[in-house]
Design a protein around this nucleic acid. Structure first.
Lengths: 337, 337
DNA sequence: ATGAAAGCGCTAACAT
DNA sequence: ATGTTAGCGCTTTCAT
């Protein structure tokens, strides 16, 4: 049997209330009593039972985080940010993986409510309005993060994607490119962040008065990027494209693989730019020029928002936008023609 | 205020014990009462308070997992295994990152004890006997995982590393290589798993009667592999090495980079084999021949062990060994001389 | 400043 | 089969 507050009280010859006051610093306690309590705690190696505490305070110091898949590296980065900041304020993390299962997301939210978590963080890759409804009902502070979709009307932290595509376009044009293509994901463009990226691309293309070339890719994998290459090669040549901005690093890498296999040199013949700065990006040869999204920061900012609400502070905006960084590496250069 | 067991009892016109019996299926309840309780639960949307439950049962359905760094991909894979299996048995995961801080590991163990977790899983990259001591004191079932060091006298799940190096050596020799080098980490070889890998290497080299060439590398990064290349190039040439087996993929990739930059072709001039099958391994060009360690399985087996103990079953052995897989890809071939 | 006592929501022994 | 009741370990009024 573990040592409880009673044991401490008995040994210190005070009441359990006094012990409680000492460990919580909640009310004045005489120096003498405090000394005895501390001594008793030390002697017995007493550790307050967090569960009992949570029961009465109706608050745990646990933050629940429902992620899509802990295996994705960006998710791991977010968790890292959450974990590290949470730790500074003594919050622990309860981790649940939904694997894009809507039902699971909802079940998990309920589960976290049962566990009296202090806050909830969702990292989803799907659109699930139901889960938002549950969250809003719960009265638990939460932040909803989504890499692909725009989160509206809910607390979130997101990337400034317009800024991202503008940075890329400006760089490319400054390097002398004019025939620039963009590769986007195929679906729900209105709902997704692709909207903003395409806007940035289009604006610049209009500005320099060149024809827009937007290709759609199916899937998120390197294979899909490779398959894309196969599909668009002719068009690339016909349109004399000298630079391609891809919506995801994986796609860019797959595309580079395809080009390499077809004797088209990157960046000499075509510059390829990715998006995301996944770990492979800086290893791959040629090293990928890409947009680095601050996932660690997203996690850190997200948890800070929850902590803020917990402290009773009001949030100004629902959404916080974080800037990105253009990582110029070896898969891009000026056009060599 | 959330709805409690009392509200359900009142609405169903039964006692709270009956409600408890229904939700826990712990004792027979008349069909009629059960029906009313279920209806009331449904109507009120009642969800049992897990915290109160844990307080009385002294058991939570939470498994604590202390990892070195959630950012490492192998750690993420382990967590994935733990999470997925845990979920099947309704266990949740409390995640703590120690970043190789000994003090933190110990603090976290105590924290988890306070939280009444059902089990503890440690994924450490350092050697920390103190934490083992705390763990043993806690009476909480645990498994200690360590990628680099041999865990003795404690429940663990590990890789059969001798098997791993034998597989590599057998493959290389079958391909016709004889001048084979091994790259190891520099320190504590007696304590680390390197011991078994080197044993496998040495055994085979003795068998074919060739001179052993073991190089030591400092650090775990790609840069370190690159630096290694610089240091050993002359020796490689002098000894006419045709294949190098590296203790880590990162080292292998760095080494390949260096060789590539110095006009030595992989695998034509030298075959390079890694260890770990990190995500880059199958993307990198040439794709890395390497040993795939089953991290997902390690996590899954580890949590199963804990669950087993929780069910009161005895463990046969302290350690479970999992087999590895040799992934033959493009960084290796027969010697081309 | 301190203690007694109520009660958080639940389970489980005991009584019926 | 069902209800009553005593805690689980703690915080927090309410007295003193």
């Amino acid at each position: 049997m573990a040592v409880t507050i009673k044991d401490v009280a008995r040994l210190a010859e005070v009441s359990i209330s006094t012990v409680s006051r000492v460990i919580n610093d909640s009310k004045p306690v005489s120096p003498e009593a405090r000394r005895r309590v501390l001594a008793a705690i030390d002697e017995l190696g007493y550790q307050p039972n967090e569960v009992a505490r949570s029961l009465v305070t109706k608050k745990s110091n646990i933050v629940g985080i429902i992620v899509d898949d802990i295996g994705s590296s960006y998710v791991a980065q977010i968790i890292r940010g959450v974990e590290e900041v949470g730790r500074m304020y003594n919050y622990d993390i309860l981790l649940l993986s939904s694997y894009s299962d809507k039902e699971a997301e909802i079940r998990f939210v309920q589960l976290l409510m049962q566990k009296q978590v202090a806050g909830i963080l969702i990292v989803s890759e799907i659109l699930n309005p139901e889960v938002l409804a549950h969250l809003n009902m719960s009265k638990i502070p939460f932040v909803y993060l989504n890499k692909y979709y725009n989160v509206l009307e809910s607390p979130t932290v997101k990337i400034n994607n317009l800024d991202a595509s503008e940075k890329v376009m400006k760089y490319l044009i400054d390097e002398g490119h004019r025939k620039i293509a963009y590769v986007t994901q195929e679906k729900d463009i209105d709902l997704t962040i692709e909207k903003h990226k395409i806007l940035g691309y289009s604006t610049f293309m209009n500005q320099i008065g060149e024809k827009k070339n937007i290709f759609e890719v199916d899937g998120h994998g390197i294979n899909d990027g490779y398959a894309l290459g196969e599909r668009i090669l002719d068009k690339l040549i016909k349109e004399e494209i000298t630079a391609i901005f891809c919506c995801e690093d994986e796609i860019a890498i797959g595309l580079i693989n395809y080009l390499y296999d077809n004797n088209i040199k990157v960046p000499d013949d075509i510059s390829v730019i990715g998006y995301g700065d996944i770990s492979q990006a800086s290893v791959y040869r040629p090293k990928l020029t890409t947009i680095k999204e601050p996932y660690y920061d997203i996690g850190a900012v997200a948890i800070r928002r929850i902590l803020k609400v917990l402290k009773g502070e009001k949030l100004e905006d629902q959404a916080i936008e974080l800037p990105v960084q253009l990582m110029v590496r070896d898969s891009s250069s000026g056009p060599k023609k």
